[in-house]
Each structure stands twice: as structure tokens, then as C-alpha cells.
Design a protein around this nucleic acid. Structure first.
Lengths: 147, 147
DNA sequence: TATTATCATTTTACTAGTCAATTGATAATA
DNA sequence: TATTATCAATTGACTAGTAAAATGATAATA
């Protein structure tokens, strides 16, 4: 009945902050011709290439279907290539993808960090990290119908 | 270059927690035949009905186009009605929508809260609320190219 | 060799959202 | 009265995702 519990208030602010952050990242990454979702996928590929689609889906917590579609778009723009070996497709960046990412990564990491650094001091960030880490871990174990 | 700054770590955990929470809410709300997105829209309508689409978009921080599409789906399922008055459409819940929501709201609020209550104590929740409130407020003022 | 199993990837049909252009209803002006 | 302006709502073309069924490639068994 009472919807204004502390937990509800936290949830609202957190969800809105994440939404707003994503929106700002999308705007920021426009200069590199990337969306935030594409950036995440490409950055993950760069750090793990060559990597299979299933591994990629796992690391990004997306479904295989979602990854498949995303890679089709990225392939169309010549940012990645898929090489089939055995029954598995290995993904890596093209030169174009690599070049763009080398510029985009430090910029985006700095931009993302500024969202926190401009507002919180070191102690607050450590506090916040401890809290969200706890929440995230618990959420991975939580199920809808326990038992 | 160093992607493992504290800020990056916070961002990752927070984004993943929000994603996971949404997934769990979707599973939880299945028993009411609703998705989390639909629940949010319907709950907002219930608390403000009758409300215009523009106001609704504003409260939910969605675009008018997005709201229009969502309401079309909800209307098709007989959960809401749009009544045109002057050049504005006023949205309200149908009896069916109202009945479902009266059950779903307390359950979903409790479920959502459990995500926090099972992990954090009162003091931690107050701390967390203060931090995310700060972050959220700052993000609303932040722009990509300052100046 | 033919059949079955395995498991990565893709596809189908959908929800949910964006931005930008268009439409609809009404008011204000020429 | 005809034209223009205003502004809510819708639509078109897209990205990004899901769950579940289908496909493809290879291995293992009958």
C-alpha cells in the first residue's frame, strides 16, 4: 500500500540514474559512430579476441540470439569479423573496429567515470561499491519462487 | 587505459543489478499477466488518473512515441481506455486493469523491496539512498558537451 | 554407413524503446 | 471565412533485447 518505502525510493533513483547514464553515453559515443550497446560488445571483444559468441553472450549477460543480431549489425558496418572454425564462430575486430575502439575506450571510460567522480569522493565511492556489490551478488542468487 | 577504476566497477555492478532486478520483476509479474514495463505504466496511471499521455511520458521519463505504442498494447488487452476531450486524450484504467493492479501493486512493491531488505539494514539503505539520489540529480544536470 | 545426439548459431515473433516526420484538433490571426 | 500556428498523439524506420523453435556442423553410436 505504502509505495514510498526507502527501498522503493532507492530503486526509482537507481533505475533512473542508469537510464540517464545510458542516454548520456549514447550521446557521448555519437562522435565515434557507436551506441553504448555496441561499445560494450566491441570493448568486450577487444579484451578477449578471438572469442566465441556464446562466451560473449555470457560475459555481457545477453542471450545468444541478442548477440547474434548485434554482431550481424556490427559486421555490416565492418567493425568485426566472424571466422568459422569447427562448429564455432570466432569473433574479432577488424582494423577499422580496432582503430575506432582505441580512441573510444579511454574517452568513454573517462566519461563514464566522470559521472561518479564529479559527485562522490573516494570514501563515498568505496561505500557505494560495497553496497551495490552486495545487492548484485544477492540478486544473482535470488529466484522468484523460492522452494 | 585502466578500465578497472572504482567508478567502472560501480557502474558495472549497478547496471547489472538493475538488469537482473528487471528480469526478476518480469518473472514475478507473470502471475498477473504483466511485464515490469506495463506495471510501471499502469501504476502511474492508477495514481494519477485521468492523465494525459504527455504527462505520463514525463513522469515515466519516456518519449511520447513510446507511451503511445505502450498504451496501444495495453488498450488491446483492455487494461486502459483513452477518452478524447478537446485535443487531448485522457487515460484511465478499465475495471479489469484496476482489479489486476489492486492485487499486483502490493505484491510487486513487496517483491521489489525484498531485493534490498534481504541484503541491507536500515542504515545501509539510508546511506545508499543518499548516494544514488546525489548521482541521479547530478546526471540530470550533466550534458555531453558542457559549454 | 545411417541415425542420433550435441551444442553453437540463427531465425521467428514478439516487447520496448528511440528520433524525426506526419497527422489531427483546435485556436488565433489575416 | 481561409490560413496559419500550436501542440498532442501517431507513425515510420530503426536499435536492442527476449524466449523458443529451427538450422548447421560435427561427433558418437547402432
Amino acid at each position: 500500500m505504502d509505495r514510498n518505502t526507502l527501498s522503493s525510493l532507492i530503486w526509482l533513483r537507481m533505475a533512473r540514474f542508469v537510464q540517464r547514464s545510458n542516454h548520456l553515453s549514447n550521446e557521448f559515443l555519437e562522435q565515434y559512430g557507436l551506441t553504448a550497446a555496441q561499445f560494450d560488445v566491441l570493448a568486450q571483444i577487444q579484451h578477449n579476441q578471438p572469442i566465441t559468441q556464446t562466451e560473449l553472450a555470457d560475459k555481457l549477460t545477453l542471450t545468444c540470439g541478442g548477440i547474434s543480431r548485434m554482431l550481424t549489425r556490427l559486421e555490416k558496418e565492418n567493425l568485426i569479423i566472424r571466422k568459422q572454425q569447427w562448429k564455432i564462430k570466432y569473433i574479432s575486430l577488424t582494423d577499422k573496429g580496432s582503430t575506432i575502439l582505441n580512441e573510444a575506450i579511454p574517452a568513454q571510460v573517462a566519461f563514464q567515470a566522470s559521472m561518479f567522480d564529479e559527485v562522490l569522493d573516494e570514501a563515498e565511492k568505496k561505500q557505494l561499491y560495497a553496497l551495490v556489490k552486495k545487492l548484485h551478488k544477492a540478486s544473482l542468487e535470488k529466484t522468484v519462487s523460492p522452494k
